[in-house]
């Protein structure tokens, strides 16, 4: 009986010695999250990334792998965020004709809207006397994850808090843009899509693709431009 338990223990140690258990848990959580999302009828306020993160947190806690060991193994996946950021340049190029067609309103809106996406939240947190590390973590909240992580690190914020803020921002932006568009009588999918991508990054973009391909294209555009603009502008002005 003890032998059996010992052997089980050795198997578990074998699994956690390398990255395999971390990778398996992450992949499984991603798939279950997507499956549940479809099962729940694609709710606006409960996107796949939120489901996946909740499942993953529970799995890490229950499996006994430990957060530290899990993260070390998951590095094998997260290292791909670099090339994935580069990959975002491809849809940006593919939608260049959209940028050219609507370049004036995009150019008028982008700098102010992308700055305000950061300034509103940082300003509110600053008024509520949050420490600098929290301000730095919140500043890139509307920027797509791989870029935001880089910005948060550079500004001296917490990457985990930034990602949490990103998650909440993406979900809220999907809900608020929907609400705002109805209140302001905006039916142009290009405007709704752009607002979704600019404020709600990848989560807003995924939502925009559910509305229409045009909305999705403009969301990718808004997400990409906000990412570049914020990455270029924030490190120079922070902390004011």
């Amino acid at each position: 009986m003890t032998d059996y338990g010992e052997n089980l223990n050795r198997v578990f140690q074998l699994w956690t010695a390398g990255p395999m258990l971390s990778i398996a848990l992450t992949l499984a959580a991603f798939m279950v999250g997507n499956w549940l999302f479809v099962r729940f009828g694609r709710p606006l306020w409960m996107p796949p990334v939120l489901l996946a993160a909740l499942i993953l947190a529970a799995a890490v806690a229950v499996s006994g792998i430990g957060y530290q060991t899990y993260q070390e193994g998951a590095t094998w996946l997260t290292v791909l965020l670099g090339p994935t950021t580069v990959a975002l340049g491809v849809p940006l190029y593919q939608q260049m004709h959209h940028i050219r067609a609507l370049w004036k309103p995009i150019l008028c809106t982008l700098p102010l809207a992308a700055s305000l996406a950061a300034v509103y939240a940082v300003g509110i947190a600053w008024l509520m006397e949050a420490p600098l590390s929290i301000l730095a973590s919140l500043a890139p909240k509307s920027v797509t994850a791989p870029i935001a992580m880089g910005i948060a690190e550079q500004l001296g914020g917490s990457v985990a808090l930034t990602l949490g803020g990103l998650l909440i921002t993406g979900v809220l932006a999907s809900v608020f843009v929907d609400w705002g568009a109805r209140r302001m009588n905006i039916t142009d999918d290009r405007i709704v899509g752009f607002a979704l991508g600019l404020n709600g990054h990848a989560i807003g973009t995924a939502r925009a693709f559910e509305i229409s391909p045009i909305a999705g294209a403009f969301a990718s555009l808004g997400m990409g431009l906000t990412g570049v603009f914020t990455a270029l502008f924030l490190p120079f002005v922070f902390p004011f």
């Binding site: 993953l56 993260q71 998951a74 791909l80 994935t84 947190a125 919140l138 992580m149 990457v159 985990a160």
Partner: peptide, 29 residues
């Protein structure tokens, strides 16, 4: 989504680090 989920999980494990500031963070967001 798969690639960012390990990072997002971190927020559940750093909860105490920002325990005094949750209200501020929530209102700001």
């Amino acid at each position: 989504v798969l690639l960012i989920s390990p990072g997002v999980v971190g927020v559940f494990f750093i909860a105490d680090q920002f325990s005094g500031h949750w209200m501020t963070i929530a209102v700001a967001l």
